[in-house]
Design a protein around this nucleic acid. Structure first.
Length: 364
DNA sequence: AACGCGGGGCT
DNA sequence: AGCCCAGCGTT
């Protein structure tokens, strides 16, 4: 049976939801004030990322870049370093680009209209609504995964939330039930409810402050919602990499391309394996022909790094070795000391590799 | 509309 | 071994 908004006592629902959020909301660092810049930073970090993961990153990031002006003027390398390990690195490149735009074109004031704020890089429908409602009290929907799950249950909406078109259904639902007295709390409460009570599996309906309003609970189908089709599985890539030291004890690092996977992050020289050629030979030939760097690799690899992304899996076999000739440093190829190396942003897989390398050196 | 894009924690 | 997470940009 299809649900409907007509069956919802909107005023009572708002009261119950806002009362619960007022009393039960978590004490989070980005809730200490409503500075649009801090709300913005937190919302970008929270995209596809859990609250517990974000908290330490948010605190460090605001310490390093406390204002729009500071972030606008910061060195991109340092900004990326502050994001290291958080994932989806294009988020922070877009954030800095957008902050520069606000700094230069809006006098440093985050715009407060849907039309203007959505033009900013990295600010889509969700983030626009979140900033507008939380920082400025504008009654715009902020529909994320939590909100779709919660409302699919309360309003008995059976649309497939994996489809992009479904978001509009939920946005219209929010428009018709959002509190105009407190849009900020209303949007945050829906998300907080999704995070604490109305969870993906085994929701805590008996603790739910809006259980009386929930059509899925009424019909006993809360476990069948939301409807979400699964996506296909990941592909697998085999790589070989090397931690290479020159005769002065410096290490060779390579900057990844500015587009695609792990864009602009640093790595140890890496190539994809091939069926016909031995991994060490592939790496040696690649370094020689691509960069004119002659290397000598140790007999056996010191570690193997398995790494799971959302859409693919890496297996990296890692060797240590030495550089035998003079290296011409280019923009994307650098020799750095072990200490300098810590100033560059590496993907987690290469952080693990470096750690394993240091351990292997310690043993010998 | 579908896909690429990180990393970690839970079931 | 998937699934999910305070999604967005590109194609």
């Amino acid at each position: 049976m299809a649900g409907s908004i007509e069956q919802l006592n909107i005023k009572q629902f708002q009261n119950d939801l806002l009362h619960w959020f007022t009393n039960e909301q978590r004490d989070l660092p980005w809730r200490k004030d409503q500075d649009p810049y801090k709300v913005w930073v937190s919302e970008i970090m929270l995209q596809q990322t859990r609250v517990d993961t974000v908290i330490p990153y948010f605190n460090r990031f605001i310490e390093n870049f406390p204002t729009i002006e500071k972030l606008a003027e910061a060195d991109e390398e340092n900004v990326l370093k502050a994001w290291e390990g958080l994932g989806y690195y294009s988020r922070v490149r877009n954030l800095q680009a957008a902050v520069k735009e606000v700094h230069e074109s809006y006098g440093g004031v985050v715009p407060n209209t849907p039309e203007e704020i959505k033009k900013l890089k990295g600010v889509g429908p969700y983030t626009a609504g979140a900033i507008l409602s939380i920082a400025y009290g504008v009654p715009e929907p902020a529909v994320d995964g939590n909100v779709m799950r919660v409302l699919s249950r309360i309003l008995l909406i059976w649309d497939d939330i994996a489809k992009a078109s479904s978001r509009k259904v939920f946005e219209e639902a929010v428009r018709s039930i959002i509190s105009h007295e407190n849009p900020s709390y209303f949007n945050q409460a829906l998300m907080e409810l999704g995070a604490l009570i109305c969870t993906p599996t085994s929701p805590s309906c008996l603790l739910c402050p809006v259980r009386e309003h929930c059509q899925a609970f009424h019909e006993g189908v809360q476990d069948q919602l939301p409807v979400k089709t699964k996506k296909k599985s990941t592909r697998h890539v085999e790589l070989v990499a090397a931690v290479l030291k020159d005769h002065q004890g410096r290490y060779l690092i390579h900057k990844r391309p500015e587009q695609g996977l792990l864009a602009n992050l640093w790595e140890f020289p890496t190539v994809e394996k091939s069926k016909l050629i031995k991994p060490k030979d592939i790496l040696q030939d690649f370094m020689k022909h691509e960069y004119d760097i002659h290397i000598q690799l140790d007999k056996t690899s010191f570690t193997a790094i398995p790494h799971v992304f959302s859409h693919l899996t890496w297996d990296i076999e890692a060797y240590s070795g030495t550089i035998e000739n003079e290296v011409k440093e280019a923009g994307n190829m650098k020799l750095v000391t072990a200490e300098e190396l810590t100033n560059y942003a590496f993907p987690v897989s290469y952080q693990k590799m470096w750690k394993a390398y240091l351990e292997s050196v310690k043993e010998n």
